[in-house]
Write a protein that binds this DNA or RNA. Structure first.
Lengths: 342, 342
DNA sequence: TTTTAAAATACAATCGATTGTATTTTAAAT
DNA sequence: ATTTAAAATACAATCGATTGTATTTTAAAA
């Protein structure tokens, strides 16, 4: 009936035992005798007692809650990361407060204020594409709680970042295209304010360099990598000369480009070979299937949550960053010369 | 420096104004003069005051947080629902605590206890496939907080449900196959303990009936609709006689069936026409593209959150259920006779 | 100038659990 | 039976904000 409205004081009164003892008993403190513990526990279940966590939180200044800031929940990659975070947090008895920045700095700022107000014990954040300054993270950090960056690494104070080996992955992806015989490779890149996209571009350039191909600025198309922008980049590609390969830093753009190409008589991979990034479920199903980089998204979530909870317990950040390895998944969209020459 | 550690008492001391007045000023109460309000606000920002919501929550017995229980975050449909919920909650100043049941009753039970302990102001839940009794919801409901079911409707006490018109949608999907000329239609159904899947099956049967086709139990394959089960159901289909159509209640199963069929020389839709359910992004990209039911997932999230927050404010449930309309998206996988006869 | 109602502010209890300190109880040692 | 250390329990302050009531201040009315 009145479940949830029973307090330790009710138990205290019912048994004539002080509330402090009740509290200790419920927390299994060694300061309470087994006999009284048993009595108290029995009464607690009898009355349907449920600890009021709000009160507990206030007193202990802990919430057992971590905040997760994510650009967009519904993006496949992120929803998998969140699943990993939730899984790990659940096992450790933490709650997960999820907030979407929708790639907006303004929202991200408000979110950080809310998370501070709510005194979450730590924050996992993948900064928005608009985020170039980190003022809004300072109050939370100054309060003394840890922040861990995931996916989009960030050198803010002594915070830990967890990400994949973006440079190498991009290098390998580009190299793969080169080894397939591509000579004029276009890069679909993301906003260059984000370290992540810088790294991917660097990997692309490094591969070109290694194989003596010249990097040409017009071959580097920067956008937010949405479906729409994938299409418009595809259009641009057709206006460039002799493009025979594309390395896109996400699958969304790569896939919408493929569809545009197919609709306009450009053969994939015979005319243009394409490599994406993310290994979205669609990439395995589209025809031709998309060669892409498989990121350990779920694992990243698990690892990020573990790291954060570790820092919450130990009250300090190592500042070290964790790099997970991704791998190239070769499918049909990149079988360029192999298909045509052999 | 000490941001977040400043309390109303610090402001109170600094200005020689009682903390109650400070509190009221910060809450913009009419009981405080404009002049003092200004002074207090100025001091608050100067000191970097951040309201401690834990204390506030305890006193007011409100958390401004809603709990969301979801079978699996990373499923496209659900992540879109969550995006809608988060969006609406954000606008209303609510936080969203997300928990995955992973289709396990046991986890769902624990989650409900946690949500009660955390005194979330309301709960949005899509029950797990294992959930057939609702005992674990009672304590939360008895505590006096509203529960709203989304996607998987549920007749528990006077709770509101929000779902799509599953019966009609399934009816239409099946009817569509019939009108395409299919005579022997298999049903890929979900666990029949769940009202949702019952309704979809009923829709399927009703359509058969309307067109004088006989419902045959062996044509009704029940599973949890995973990828794996999609494949094994596809195998079973090939052992049945003369199957020329499949209505699957999710895309996952439909798609993996298509892939199995393609790999085994069964032509889609010429040999077997297929209709799915969900309009997952893949369904538009697979070849042949999958005819499916498009559900307003994001909108469902928005609506569910709105309903819940309304009930939180008004302290009562209408018990009425909301039904959103989905629509049939016709693509290539169901162009059965049209393709072969015309 | 005095009265009086309204406006502004102060006082103090409260939400429920936690925790350091003080007191009582128990049981072992003398 | 008495001392004493340890075990068990009680007392009381505290976390920080909120809120009903009491008191003071202000300004308008008499």
């Amino acid at each position: 009936m009145n479940s949830g409205k029973v307090t330790i004081h009710d138990i205290s009164k019912a048994l004539g035992i002080d509330s402090s003892t009740v509290s200790r008993a419920l927390n299994d403190s060694p300061r309470v005798s087994k006999k009284t513990k048993a009595k108290i526990l029995a009464k607690a279940t009898e009355l349907g007692y449920q600890r009021n966590i709000l009160a507990s939180n206030l007193r202990t200044n802990k919430t057992n809650t971590i905040g997760v800031v994510v650009p967009r929940i519904s993006r496949n990659f992120f929803s998998n990361v969140i699943a990993g975070i939730e899984e790990t947090a659940y096992e450790a008895g933490y709650n997960v407060l999820i907030c979407q920045s929708l790639e907006s700095l303004e929202r991200e700022q408000k979110i950080m204020a809310t998370l501070l107000s709510n005194r979450v014990d730590g924050v996992l954040i993948s900064i928005s594409m608009q985020t170039t300054s980190f003022e809004h993270l300072k109050p939370y950090k100054d309060y003394g709680s840890p922040i861990v960056f995931y996916d989009r690494p960030c050198s803010f104070e002594d915070c830990t970042s967890i990400s994949i080996n973006d440079f190498e992955a991009s290098f390998k992806a580009t190299e793969h295209l080169i080894l397939q015989g591509c000579k004029n490779i276009v890069h679909f890149g993301g906003p260059q304010d984000i370290e992540l996209y810088q790294n991917r571009k660097k990997g692309y350039k490094a591969a070109l360099e290694k194989y003596g191909l010249k990097y040409e600025a017009p071959f580097c198309l920067i956008s937010k990598l949405t479906e729409k922008e994938g299409t418009s980049m595809a259009k641009k590609v057709l206006k460039l000369k002799d493009v025979d390969g594309i390395f896109s830093v996400n699958d969304t753009a790569a896939i919408s480009a493929i569809q545009y190409f197919k609709a306009h008589g450009v053969r994939i991979p015979e005319d243009i070979a394409i490599v994406g990034f993310n290994n979205d479920p669609i990439s395995a199903v589209i025809e031709p299937s998309l060669t892409t980089i498989d990121q350990p998204d779920f694992e990243m979530g698990k690892k990020a949550a573990t790291l954060l909870m570790h820092q919450i317990k130990n009250k300090k950040s190592t500042g070290k960053s964790v790099v997970l390895t991704s791998k190239l998944v070769v499918r049909d969209s990149s079988k360029y010369k192999i298909n045509t020459e052999v």
